[in-house]
């Protein structure tokens, strides 16, 4: 039913964090129903059968929600379809004879571990700095004790949809993590429960973000364009606002 596609995959190979890498090109026969990762599976299966080392790439849920898959396909994190993670990108977006260039995320704060896998632990540390509401299990009042306006809850949800994949950093020519950081600040900041810590949270999270060595936002918008969950730039404005308010009117943290 579906014709085979003969593709060439030009992929970044790097043994480990310390080694220097280079591109290798491999032929692969795919079909249009495969996901991009399944195409890589087929390529890897072929490499293993030749007793060669398969291409290391990270992946898990393969349904676009865990945020594990991370690669740059022809210059775009998660490839050409907008609002789509690599695992849900299907080969019908490519055509027979294509040469597809696959690279790891590039940012100094995301060092390459091996081939296409990078270290995104900086994101965890940003959350640890303040991306939470301080409430212990068992302390909570009734869920309906504080009504939350539907629109506000919606804004919060849209920011909370971030899957922490790091495509924003990968897409940003400055290697900035402001879309990620701001999504968490906005997710919690839009809610009355989160307001309590609205002084500490932005200051602590921004400080950690800077410390990790991410670049500074210059409002290019590549992050928003490439975000598989379509997180908006408004969140960065929200973060800037929250941060300025906290710095100029709140306690020092």
């Amino acid at each position: 039913m579906s014709a085979d596609m003969n593709l060439k995959i030009k992929v970044w190979r790097q043994k480990n964090n310390k080694a220097s890498g280079s591109f290798e090109t491999y032929p692969v026969v795919a079909n249009e129903h495969m996901s991009f990762l399944e195409m890589l599976d087929v390529l890897n299966e072929g490499l293993i059968n030749q007793k060669k080392e398969p291409i290391a790439f990270e992946h898990d849920c393969r349904e676009g929600i865990c945020g594990t898959c991370s690669m740059v396909i022809n210059g775009q994190p998660h490839g050409p379809s907008s609002g789509t993670t690599t695992c849900q990108l299907h080969m019908r977006h490519f055509k027979d004879g294509d040469i597809i260039v696959v690279e790891p995320y590039r940012a100094s704060a995301f060092p390459v571990l091996k081939d296409l896998a990078v270290d995104r632990s900086a994101f965890d540390r940003i959350i640890q700095a303040g991306g939470y509401i301080s409430v212990n299990a068992g302390q909570a009042p009734d869920g309906n004790a504080i009504p939350i306006e539907k629109g506000r809850a919606g804004q919060s949800f849209e920011a909370a949809a971030c899957i922490g994949c790091g495509a924003c950093v990968a897409a940003c020519p400055n290697g900035s993590a402001m879309l990620f950081t701001s999504a968490k600040i906005a997710h919690l900041g839009h809610l009355p429960q989160g307001e309590v810590e609205s002084n500490k949270r932005p200051q602590a999270m921004v400080a950690q973000m800077d410390k990790e060595g991410f670049g500074m936002c210059s409002n290019i918008g590549a992050c928003e364009a490439e975000c598989p969950k379509e997180i908006k730039l408004e969140n960065i404005a929200f973060m800037n606002r929250s941060y300025l308010k906290a710095v100029f009117s709140g306690e020092e943290v």
């Binding site: 210059g75 775009q76 100094s108 400055n174 670049g215 210059s218 290019i220 590549a222 364009a225």
Partner: peptide, 29 residues
């Protein structure tokens, strides 16, 4: 100074660049 810092923060550049979703000006301030 921001531009220089950001250059370092980006590190290695992509072999293929695809930037049709952003303006040229924004990336060359």
């Amino acid at each position: 100074s921001i531009a220089l810092y950001n250059k370092g923060a980006k590190g290695q550049k992509y072999a293929v660049s695809n930037s049709n979703k952003t303006t040229w000006a924004s990336k060359n301030m």
